[in-house]
Computed example of a mutant assay.
Amino acid sequence: MINIAKIEQKFNSLNKFNLVFASFFFSLMTLCVKNIDERIPIYELVLFRSLLSLIITLFIINLKNINPWGKNKPLLILRGVFGTLALVCIFYAIRNMPLSISTVIQYTYPIFISIFAGIFINEKITRNIIIALIIGWIGILIILNPSHLTNINVEIENFSILIAFLGAICTALAYVTVKKLSFTEDVYVIIEYFPLVSFITLLPIVLINWVTPNWNEVVWIIGIGLFTQLGQIFLTIGLKNLPASEASTINYLQVLFGSIWGILFFSEIIKINFLFGASLVLLGTIISTTKIIKRT
């Protein structure tokens, strides 16, 4: 019999390494998405990912013998809606942009979290957040500067950039709901509603527009489901055990991993503009999630 409690205890003892593993597994997920032929629609990839994640999560919930429906169902469903929208946007951005650039844009979400936390859960929007926004946007503008994109032989449509930012915004909204739910719900119930809502909402669309994947694509699709599930578990546990400032900084490792995969597998070119811009986005993330300590 699998002892979930002992496994969770070992995960908790990893502390910040939970988030390192989360970043690594999420980066592998992006690698899988990038390798799948464009004939497979994005919503079908999200559905397969959701089905695999749902099966694994329900198995764990059954072992833990907990109520799979949770307590705050409206907020759990909302978390699923935001997560689904975020994943569709992220997959679209990964497919239509260099992996390194799409990952940097996705990781503007901690700055949006600070804004939405101020709006929806009454956290104060501080001077730090305003400064972080300015620095983060400067970094993004440096990366997306037409001259920089020309130098690396890349053309990106404005629509793809818009979708990438929409993914970051939906990710931030999902995180805010997760933060609120973490006070009353089990970790795996929170995780469960994400694929559950995705599967229910996307199934009719996929059935109407079904495209049968070949065996090579099936392997990558399984990879998406497996790596995303591992990333979700490590991330959710890691967020519970670390301050937001540390968590956001460690999560940014996915940009490093994504850049490495882009260079190794897709011959992407990394230049000083990208490194400088990505560093500014990271700096904005750190500032937005760090509280000002007043000394007396």
Rank of each mutant, 00 (worst) to 15 (best):
F227A: 03
F276C: 10
L264K: 06
P213C: 08
I224E: 07
K240Q: 12
G225L: 03
I190N: 02
I272N: 13
V197S: 05
L196H: 05
S267F: 14
V197E: 08
F227K: 06
A244G: 09
P195S: 05
G284H: 00
I205Y: 11
I191L: 11
E217P: 01
L203F: 14
L242R: 11
V281K: 01
S198R: 07
N251G: 09
S259V: 03
L239W: 06
F199S: 15
E246Y: 12
G277V: 03
G231S: 13
W261M: 06
V187C: 02
K240A: 09
S248T: 14
N209G: 10
L230T: 06
N216E: 15
I190D: 00
E268P: 12
Y188N: 09
I286N: 02
S279W: 05
L264W: 13
T249I: 13
I208R: 14
S279K: 08
Y193H: 01
I224L: 09
L282M: 12
I260V: 11
Q229N: 13
N214E: 14
Q229S: 15
S259A: 15
L253R: 05
Y188F: 15
E192F: 13
P195T: 11
N273I: 03
V189R: 04
G223H: 06
G262M: 04
E185G: 06
F274C: 02
T236G: 03
L202T: 00
L226T: 15
Y193K: 04
I200R: 08
G284K: 02
I222P: 00
I237T: 07
I272A: 11
S245A: 13
T201G: 12
A244E: 12
D186S: 06
I270N: 04
I270D: 01
I191S: 00
I269D: 05
L280I: 08
I286D: 00
G262A: 06
L196D: 12
E217D: 10
P213T: 09
F276P: 00
T201N: 08
E192T: 12
I233E: 03
L203M: 15
I222Q: 07
I286P: 00
I287Y: 10
I286R: 11
T236P: 06
Q254V: 13
P204V: 07
L264G: 02
L283T: 11
D186A: 01
W220M: 15
I269G: 05
N241D: 12
G231V: 04
F266I: 02
Y188S: 00
I270T: 14
L256E: 03
F266R: 07
V219K: 12
S248D: 05
V218Y: 15
V197D: 02
N216V: 15
P195Y: 10
I200M: 08
I200S: 09
Y252D: 05
E268S: 08
L253Q: 10
L283S: 12
S279R: 02
V197C: 05
V255M: 09
Q254E: 15
G258T: 11
A247G: 14
I191D: 02
L283I: 10
L239R: 06
Q232A: 08
L282A: 01
I287L: 05
L242V: 12
